[in-house]
Design a protein around this nucleic acid. Structure first.
Lengths: 202, 202
DNA sequence: TTCATAAATTAAACATGTTTAATAAAACGT
DNA sequence: ACGTTTTATTAAACATGTTTAATTTATGAA
């Protein structure tokens, strides 16, 4: 890397660290381009140069945490348990994570969900990767004879993902809903689906 | 209604009409609180008084169109066709509708989807009503012996709704995706689900 | 009618995301 | 080494959603 490139990378890091700090300590409302810039000792325009938009900045600041939560949940996935239990292990972890700061993640979801794939490549990549992961789980279950082997595993994975995301939306929309309640309802829906794709006897 | 109440209602109508006109003729980017206020011959602050936020205004301006699209699709629902065909009739109409102005509806979806139920009661009500409708369709199919009658119809309806909404998100995120392509993919997912909830023989 | 109260409306100000035009400095070819 | 070009940075301006405080207007009681 050049001198130029290194200093640019360093500046990016400083801005990102400032954004994380403010988000954590003061919340999303206080996290403005100006406050982040001030904390980083840089001009607001510079924040724009480095992260393009405020959405880009927040996405960059929070994306790692989400990634980490997913990975942690996957790492602790219980072996030798029914598929529903394993899925609920992941979904439960996600709901509890989003529950730690609902307004913050509402903002993130709001500003990223309906962006163009090109405009929020992080999200697209994360979604794709997660779908592929679900798809391998489905294939494992097919191999173990728990799911009809004629099924397209990716389509089944998409269904499971759709259930989760619908529930996430409802969870964020309803502040009264606890992570446990969201997980329980999601379990019901998932259960119905899984029962349907069990192999037929005979 | 009072004189006060009537004039207030009239003002609301004028503002709403102005918003619709600008959205239609100039698009979402040109639809600002100031431009709407100017078109309506009213102050920007007045728009806030009447619609609370810009999101509230846009929601009010577009909500009817969506409602109309749904109702129209439901009214033209083909009788005596398999459930999948009937669902696709609705989904197809919705995708084609959103396709008429993707940026506009992206903005609407973005600003409403993750709001609190309390903050966007319109949306919640629309979602609930549509779920109930899907649920009655499922019950009809159960009565006709096409779906396992032990199923909870509302849960199945939620699944179908989840598939649709996931596909809508993908549709909005990917500008290259045609309404037909979105519908086709959604059909595949729905098909897999429906096959699973057919009554078991014996 | 008259006056006090409540409500509708607005001008001006504010906060914030983003753009523009200018500056300073590194990179690179000669 | 020198001059040109590219690039990181920024100050100032801009556009827009929203708030505030003041003004005008209608309502209802005395």
């Amino acid at each position: 890397m050049n001198r130029r490139e290194t200093t640019k990378a360093e500046t990016s890091e400083i801005i990102l660290a400032s954004a994380k700090k403010i988000l954590l300590e003061n919340g999303i409302v206080k996290c403005t381009m100006r406050s982040v810039a001030a904390e980083a000792g840089v001009s607001p325009a510079s924040v724009v140069v480095h992260f393009k938009t405020k959405t880009g900045l927040i996405e960059a600041a929070l994306h790692e945490d989400i990634e980490h939560t997913i990975m942690h949940a996957i790492a602790g996935l219980p072996e030798d348990r029914p598929l529903l239990d394993r899925l609920m292990h992941i979904w439960g972890a996600m709901f509890r994570f989003y529950d730690t700061n609902r307004n913050l993640y509402r903002e993130l979801l709001r500003s990223t969900t309906f962006e163009t794939d090109a405009d929020s490549p992080h999200i697209k990549e994360q979604m794709d990767r997660f779908l592929r992961f679900l798809s391998t789980i489905v294939r494992d279950e097919q191999a173990a004879g728990n799911i009809d082997s004629r099924l397209e595993s990716l389509v089944a994975a998409e269904s499971l993902g759709a259930f989760y995301f619908m529930m996430l939306i409802r969870f964020i929309r309803d502040p009264e809903m606890t992570p446990a309640a969201a997980a329980a309802h999601l379990a019901k829906i998932t259960q119905q689906f899984l029962a349907g794709i069990e192999p037929q006897l005979g």
